[in-house]
Write a protein that binds this DNA or RNA. Sequence first.
DNA 1: CTAGAGATTCAAGTGCACTTGAAGTCAAGG
DNA 2: CCTTGACTTCAAGTGCACTTGAATCTCTAG
Lengths: 159, 159
Amino acid sequence: MATTTPPGISAWLTIGELAKRTGVATSALRFYEERGLIHSERTSAGHRRYPRPTTRRVAFITFAQRVGLTLEEVKAELDLLPQHHVPTQDDWSRLTTHWQERIEERIRELERLKDGLTNCIGCGCLSLDRCKVMNPYDSAAKLGTGPRYWQGDPRPFGR
Amino acid sequence: MATTTPPGISAWLTIGELAKRTGVATSALRFYEERGLIHSERTSAGHRRYPRPTTRRVAFITFAQRVGLTLEEVKAELDLLPQHHVPTQDDWSRLTTHWQERIEERIRELERLKDGLTNCIGCGCLSLDRCKVMNPYDSAAKLGTGPRYWQGDPRPFGR
DNA sequence: CTAGAGATTCAAGTGCACTTGAAGTCAAGG
DNA sequence: CCTTGACTTCAAGTGCACTTGAATCTCTAG
């Protein structure tokens, strides 16, 4: 499988090489493959061989997880990449643009939590009139299934 | 158990009431109690009765989880509260000050990821010379078990 | 030729944070 | 009296993201 790559450097990576370059365990890589996030060809012996651009896919997965996406969500994003050719800058850019918004959203949530922390819990009254959580006469109870608006949705994005 | 609270309003909450006020399922509350994050007294019938300030503890737990702490970490923080009296503003403030730093840290990480996203993956080369991940001659391989410095630590804080 | 490193599959296990289900108890209302 | 609803315990199940273990196979170096 000689290509234009320098001598000794194949265009294909073994699972061990891919693991070393991405810092992701081989067991995890097999798991990703099983879930359809990455793909490999097989040698005659049945060993996996990954195309070089797979490192970028794995990098993307790792990034996405740090941001808070589930593997299923990551797969959904990766599935948007073109199948018929190796993804270009533009292809990747399209995905990541989408992301910046999600990250910013999450950052805003954290800012909100930081404030809520000071305003609600930090003050020692859980912001009685704003949150109504500690309201002794339960005016908040009328709002429905407990006052939730200071909580944010349960796991709306990442954990 | 009459206190200075208005008629019909007990100083103690049933698990159902606590669930309604915090928006946390009764099963979760029992789970928290089993793990020592909250505590209850029992009626003669064996039913749980929570002191009113427990709502604040639960609120704290919910907040902490949204920020990314594990229950074990939350417990460690709650254990810092005084046992011999109902926590005051100052008691809660001490905990949350500690936190603001963690939140800011996490925000910084997300900002870093957002940049890394553009600079590394977004550009379509995974930042060849910065990350060395895609370096065809493997200069990065010398760094040890794969280039990780663009990844951040695995789950250092939150998920 | 043989040892050892690295690959394979498949099933089962792990850790976290709960949820669900089964079987039972208890107090209040019709 | 009987039902209803809220509570109880305990065991087992869930979802996610993997990891671990066992048994086996393949490649490379000495």
